[in-house]
Write a protein that binds this DNA or RNA. Structure first.
Lengths: 210, 210
DNA sequence: AAGTGTGAATCGCTTCACAGCG
DNA sequence: CGCTGTGAAGCGATTCACACTT
């Protein structure tokens, strides 16, 4: 494997590279230069080369990079070279939207369980998934060896559900509730704060017009 | 007004500061020190002071910061001291979830229009909003002076809708489609790529276990 | 000739350390 | 004495420039 340490900023770009290379492959292009990737992604050619060199000696001087090799290596590093199961907690509006979101599976993630604590929702079906009682969380996570979970519950319930997920052995938590979650250091939490995104967008617009 | 230039990283923290201060105010706390804010948000005290000093001379030496003054200033900088109208395009699963998301209004944003190009959806009501024909986009945006829009349509339609939004005078675009949008430089685009978030989470978990 | 890989220079942000105020 | 505000130092990431490979 390449380097053990990946700068946070470079890790973020890794996903972008993979997306771009996949799109090139779909368009039938089998090789690409650092300059072309930089142009498409709004980066500099030097930065692209630095990143790609870090992920392994992937390029050929004078030629460029071979797209299939890039895609394969990117997926290997990201761990999405095989489908990974994900638990989704919360079958409200947002949970249902995420349950039916087609993008996850295309990117190597499969939501294999949809759970809620509202017994009126249990048994209903969304996006091919039957809502299960959250009491089954631990059992399901263990049985299917689920390491990642998405949290789409109201803020008031988020910490309680997070505790359940931690006890069920979850290692990574994608949190859509606008609260900071208190979890053991061994568990990774990533919060998507929707209103924060809007705030930042509004601020960027404000500053641009000055 | 404070400084005209806000580092990208500091701007991001601005939203976090506001959230924390609001939560302190709700708990009845009227003053706070840089150390306490740092502790709550996982930053260093020095960084908090640097940030807050940038946003204006807000603190009192030996005392700390007054929460109401902080909240007021933060909101003023973010432009959320008054409710800002937002257009939401796409009444699919994700669009409906966003239309009914209560967090936006609490943070100074009000979705005032929900639009879709699917005439079967036009006229339906979600979260108090009636779905309108996207043909009315330009009219609605002009009438209500809407500057910000949320794009929750399939990737295949995203660029077309983005073009419409730009022509309607939108200045900021929160994009939930997994595609890069081509817009004039004067328009700010922020993309929330859901599967990218999962990828990064998975990678963080992977790297942690090494 | 085209394009990668990489040391060196540079840039921007974070942390440190402390002067100064209440 | 507690705590802010800030120059200075430190650090990580980006950019530059170019030797080197095909």
């Amino acid at each position: 494997m390449a380097k053990q340490t990946i700068p946070k900023a470079a890790a973020l770009r890794l996903s972008l590279y993979l997306r771009e290379v996949e799109s090139l492959l779909e368009a039938g292009q089998t090789k690409v230069s650092s300059g072309q990737l930089a142009e498409s992604l709004g980066l500099t050619a030097a930065q692209v080369r630095k990143d790609l060199a870090r992920f392994g000696p992937l390029g050929r001087a004078g030629i460029g990079y071979l797209c299939p090799a890039l895609a394969e290596q990117f997926r290997r590093i990201l761990g999405t070279d095989q489908l990974r199961p994900v638990a989704l907690v919360g079958a409200g509006n947002l949970g249902r939207a995420l349950a039916t979101y087609p993008g996850f599976e295309r990117r190597g993630f499969k939501i294999t369980a949809l759970l809620d604590n509202d017994l009126r929702k249990v048994g209903r079906q969304y996006g091919g998934l039957i809502v299960q009682d959250i009491a089954k969380l631990h059992f399901v996570c263990q049985r299917d060896r689920i390491r990642l979970a998405i949290l789409a519950v109201p803020g008031s319930a988020a910490q309680d559900v997070a505790d359940l997920l931690v006890r069920a052995g979850i290692q990574g938590l994608l949190n859509f509730s606008p609260v900071r979650l208190d979890v053991p250091a061994a568990v990774v939490v990533s919060t998507v704060a929707l209103s924060l995104e809007l705030e930042q967008l509004g601020l960027a617009v404000r500053l641009r017009n000055k």
